[in-house]
């Protein structure tokens, strides 16, 4: 038998219960999502969706910060939610997060290198300064910085780009095999955005890190992704190879998303029109009834 996949997500659902005793309301944030990431071929796996599509909840479950209501998430064949103590720490070293806003991820009153050192202490069991600084410097080199540049600096002394790179370096210290990046570029400027996504490509190609890239930006997703899943209200509506899907989406919701991407063909002509959201059936009933069916070029599309 072949080795288990790196990450195996099977029929995962998450239900949040809101309200009090009398007005209890259940919200299905994630509904029966399944996919697997292979251990042999690192890839950029993109999860696309609007706010409320459940993409962040799914990311939290992959990181082990949330427990699914039903279904299983396995990392290297073992259930993520069941890991405790040292076992959980070992898992956390292998699956690392990067957050949306680099300015909020760092404590403004602490020096940036302290944040890196605490990661080295925790995951590499480094005790002396030399033991910590080796891996820190190496991780910073992977993102185009060096320890000399960030040592002793406070977050406000670094530019947004340097901070987001430092946040990525921090995630690399424990030599993870998966990085979960939740909207890592939505808060940064255009030129910086490309620096970050180019960096993800290099991490995949040269360090063999699989990146789960969560975004609502279809253009960067097209640029770097190997596979994508498109989510709507907690349901996967289309998944498979990234470029064929984004070139010719089949599910009405994926088509709506693609139509809404601002193009440059008519730059300056002022021809912008509405998205036509009203014509697409975005009701939850249509989604619940539908199921994912295989279509051409290896993609799955939800049909009603």
């Amino acid at each position: 038998m072949s080795a288990p996949p790196l990450l195996d997500v099977r029929d995962v659902s998450k239900v949040f219960t809101m309200g009090g005793v009398l007005s209890r309301k259940q919200i299905r944030a994630v509904n029966e999502v399944s996919f697997a990431l292979s251990a042999e071929t690192p890839e950029i796996f993109t999860i696309i969706g609007e706010s409320g599509s459940g993409k962040t909840t799914l990311a939290r479950m992959i990181l082990g910060s949330d427990v699914p209501t039903s279904g299983e998430l396995k990392f290297e064949g073992r259930d993520i939610a069941a890991r405790r103590g040292a076992d959980r720490l070992a898992f956390m070293a292998r699956v690392q997060p990067i957050f949306q806003n680099p300015f909020e991820a760092f404590n403004p009153l602490k020096r940036v290198d302290r944040y890196l050192a605490s990661t080295a202490r925790r995951f590499l069991n480094a005790r002396t300064e030399a033991e910590m600084e080796g891996p820190m410097d190496e991780a910073l080199h992977h993102v185009g910085l060096s320890l000399k540049e960030v040592k002793g600096r406070f977050p406000h002394e670094l530019s947004g780009g340097q901070l987001q790179r430092t946040a990525i370096a921090r995630a690399l210290i424990s030599k993870p095999s998966v990085i979960v990046a939740d909207e890592p570029v939505s808060m940064v400027d255009a030129s910086l955005r490309m620096a970050i996504v180019n960096l993800f490509k290099r991490l995949r190609d040269e360090l063999g890190v699989t990146i789960i890239y969560i975004t609502h930006d279809l253009a960067t997703a097209y640029y770097i992704s190997d596979r994508i899943i498109i989510m709507q209200k907690g349901h996967v509506v289309e998944m498979g190879p990234a470029r064929p899907i984004l070139d010719a989406p089949q599910h009405p919701y994926s088509q709506l998303l693609k139509r809404s991407v601002l193009s440059f063909d008519d730059a300056g002509r002022g021809l912008i029109t509405r998205s036509g959201r009203e014509e697409v059936d975005t009701s939850a009933e249509a989604l619940v009834k539908g199921r994912l069916e295989p279509a051409e070029d290896g993609r799955l599309v939800r049909v009603g």
Partner: peptide
């Protein structure tokens, strides 16, 4: 440096701050 759907050519990033 603008990414566009349908375009896979490498996109530059501006160094410096």
């Amino acid at each position: 440096s603008l990414p566009r759907i349908g375009d896979t050519s490498p996109k530059p990033s501006l160094e410096g701050r």
